[in-house]
Amino acid sequence: MTATQTAAVPPSLLDVLLFYVEAGCDEAIGDRPVDRTSLLPPKPAAAGGAPRPQTTPAPVTPAQVMPKPAAANPALLSAQAAESAATQLAAACHSVAELEAAIKGFTGCALKATATNTVIARGNPNAPLMIIGEAPGRDEDAQGAPFVGESGQLLDKMLKAIGRDESNVYISNVIFWRPPGNRDPSSEEILACKPFIERLIALCRPKVIACAGKFAAATLLGTTQGITRIRGRWQEYCRDDLVIPAMPLLHPAYLLRQPGVKREAWRDMLTLAAKLEEMS
């Protein structure tokens, strides 16, 4: 077969493949070119249509691959927001009347939604003695005044025994709305109300403070000890420019449950009376 005859014979598919192998081609590809620098595989063209143009995706930035920070605790954010709002409202009040209006209009404490009344204070805001309890109970919620139930009646008798009544005593609580079922107030509820009771003290500037119960003592004096250990021991309430002698007392409700400790409570009342006499 001459060279002219060999050229006239078309090569077989096997001959073509052997040619490409000898030329260094070791991979078979499709009918259309593939951009192998792309991060995403090309989408197939629609049937019967022209092939879609290849697009290069936008580069991935470090911010897209960095792990996202953990989500903040919504309850904690809510408590902090309520405390911040209460602090701003309280600071803007320059009289007891303004503060009472601010407390009644405050919606940052969830207890307000289940309470009948906002319970703030009773007595004389100019009195030398300020007694601060924990939270309103059923009777207080119904009447809108602190310490008016059975424990409040016992407190009035104790005050009367040392020559005190609503004319020379001012009575309030660290919480202004009744916790359902008379349960203990939560830390979030205390945070929401604390700026208001601190502002009330700053406006009244009593000579002596009596903290009735563990929550009042913990909130105002920062103590972590039980009330039975610190009762009757003088401490100091310190806020900004105020330094006021403060006496932790057993709550009257506790005295009703444990009448055997009334002797210790009476000694504390006598100590309280002596301090007021000394300061007058």
Rank of each mutant, 00 (worst) to 15 (best):
T223V: 06
E278Q: 05
K112S: 04
A212G: 10
A81E: 07
G222F: 12
L255Q: 08
A72E: 05
A50F: 00
A90Y: 06
A8D: 08
L220Y: 11
T6M: 13
L17A: 10
A142S: 05
A58R: 10
N124L: 11
P59A: 08
N126D: 09
E189V: 00
M247R: 07
L249N: 01
Y254N: 07
D15F: 15
R263I: 07
T61Y: 07
M130A: 06
R183K: 08
L99G: 11
L250S: 11
I227K: 05
D241Q: 14
E188K: 00
G144H: 03
S95L: 02
E150L: 14
L99A: 03
A71M: 05
P185S: 09
M66D: 09
P128H: 10
R199E: 06
K43P: 02
D184T: 06
P69Y: 05
A121F: 12
Q64A: 13
E100H: 07
P59R: 03
T4V: 14
D165T: 15
K214F: 13
A210N: 15
D241Y: 13
F215C: 02
Y254P: 03
C193G: 01
M247D: 15
R231M: 07
D139N: 15
G222I: 07
Q258C: 14
A71W: 10
I190K: 04
I197H: 08
V169K: 04
A101Q: 05
E166R: 11
P10S: 15
R231V: 11
A161V: 08
E98Q: 11
V174H: 04
A46V: 00
P67T: 12
G152S: 12
P195H: 11
G260N: 06
H251I: 01
A8H: 14
A127D: 05
T2S: 09
K112P: 01
G108N: 01
M130K: 12
C109V: 00
E189P: 01
G48C: 02
F106E: 01
T116E: 12
L221K: 10
A92K: 02
R231F: 08
I29Y: 07
G105A: 02
G163H: 04
A3T: 05
S95K: 03
C211F: 12
I29P: 14
F176Y: 08
A135F: 09
P245T: 10
L272C: 09
R263E: 13
T87R: 15
A274N: 14
V34H: 00
